[in-house]
Design a protein around this nucleic acid. Sequence first.
DNA 1: CTGAAAGCGCTTACAG
DNA 2: CTGAAAGCGCTTACAG
Lengths: 330, 330
Amino acid sequence: MADIREVAKRANVSISTVSRVLGGTTRVVEEKRARVLAAINELDYRPNVSAQSLKGIRTRTIGLVIPNVRNLVLPAAIRGVEDVARNHGYAVVLCNTDEDSDKEQFYIKTLKSRLIDGFLFTTAKTTSSNIKELQAEGFPVMLLLRELDDQSHAVVLDHYNGAYQATNYLISRGLTRIGLVNGSLDIKLYEERYAGYRSALKEAGLKVPEEAVVHGIDGGIEAYRAATRILLNRVEVDAFFATSDDKALGVMRAIKDLGLAIPEDISVIGFDNADIALLLDPPLTTVAQPLYEMGAAACRQLIEMIEAKQPVTPEIQRFPAEVVIRNSVK
Amino acid sequence: MADIREVAKRANVSISTVSRVLGGTTRVVEEKRARVLAAINELDYRPNVSAQSLKGIRTRTIGLVIPNVRNLVLPAAIRGVEDVARNHGYAVVLCNTDEDSDKEQFYIKTLKSRLIDGFLFTTAKTTSSNIKELQAEGFPVMLLLRELDDQSHAVVLDHYNGAYQATNYLISRGLTRIGLVNGSLDIKLYEERYAGYRSALKEAGLKVPEEAVVHGIDGGIEAYRAATRILLNRVEVDAFFATSDDKALGVMRAIKDLGLAIPEDISVIGFDNADIALLLDPPLTTVAQPLYEMGAAACRQLIEMIEAKQPVTPEIQRFPAEVVIRNSVK
DNA sequence: CTGAAAGCGCTTACAG
DNA sequence: CTGAAAGCGCTTACAG
């Protein structure tokens, strides 16, 4: 690729002038500006990001740290992030941590040495301090889907209310023995969904069927095993609240494998409204999380933080949850 | 972060020496080397990638260009890519093109100005020359999942044989009126899967039921509509071959919505063996594509190309396809 | 084996 | 408004 000297030569100006028309901050006489622009065009010149970054200019690159692309939820959020990044000229580096704090630490290190402008995490956990340390060092950090505390910028769902609504919906359909297949309580949102579930039961005068409640479940296969175990133990259950759609998928498979019908014998409600939820059998009733929009909002706010001169005060953007009614609940 | 001068000062050597112990190519006297290593450790020093890249050193960053993360297949391949990238100290920048040649072009440009070491594409199309041009400029380019021609390095499946096997399996189960829900013929692999399907039918003395064959379908929703249309037209069909699992999901939904049973009334076979295939209802019989392994292999070969001194001769690695039998076929 | 110096491609005070 | 020069953090001939 052409460099700034070639452009300068072709336009018959100094490299300083080329740099100035590119930067757009200083006045450049119209005639020269036009020549420079022409030269840039003809040579298809793009400034070398590494050279710019050495001078303290933004790299326009952000690091997106997630547990694992390979699930039903994250891809939609990633698209949201990426689309606004692209529209602002930013590139995004993808990192999968598998919920492993050491991997996360490793990625933070490599991203730092690559002079990333900011970080977007969907891996926040109460048990890890990686993110807090990074913030303390002054890096722009945004949290997405999972929050940490009110010292961090975050875009999240109102998980408590979503779970509360889901449970209430089941109750409104006459269901009373509602099992819960939940994720790890180290992750705040699963704690909140658990809390919303309990509140709804309590308000309705129902008690939590402890034998039909499991936490720490990750993905469809684990959910399948958990639900099978509960059902095989002859725990009486007329509905399951699975706190993610992939868990719901596993729970549904388990119910059917035992010869039971959905929703006639057991109802199932999920969480996320993943792209495939409406194609499942039966189409899955679930709590919608506007994943794409949340990813987009988080990326927008991160870029704002990056480009702001002064530090922005931490803000938590909480999206409302909504039950999408389909056919998996009686 | 600390820079090389601080390390040099602390270790009481010149910055050249620090650079040398880092590079590992030149001998450095053991005593100094130890001091430098200690200083690096104490300061948690990592060389500035931008500065290195300005000197012509690899950035250890690759661009991964895909149509859209938001589907059932790509995430697994991405994980394969990312895992081997991480193991070699590479970062990966993710780009979604939506099959749009202009977006692809845009990404190629931005990635170039970021001094990416190499490119990995899963977007190869016979109708676009973006990739060929990039190759002509001498950039290391790897193709994944989709190939272009024998001038390009690629890691792909034996699509023809996979489709041939799938169709043959249906035939072996006594099915004779086999519809096809296929992707765009601009993409070579869908052409190949189409060819495999036709060959199997032909060998069995069956003819292609043209009214039950559609191309250009992308995703579950479109597949749902296409299958519904075929069925509503009263085309007689006893099986569908959907050339991806997300299409199969839509086809299954369409069949059930019309009150038909799978596989009793109509059998369905998919392609990919996506993570959720075994949790569907019924569990989906499909052609397995080792997505994770293919992603890993492609990334491995790309890094090899990047780090090779001399140009590597184009090689196409073709993985074998395999039918995974579950319960969606009679 | 190792230090001082040049230079990678830029941006930005500093003069004019 | 604009050019020459310094310098961002590195690597690597060049001497010694």
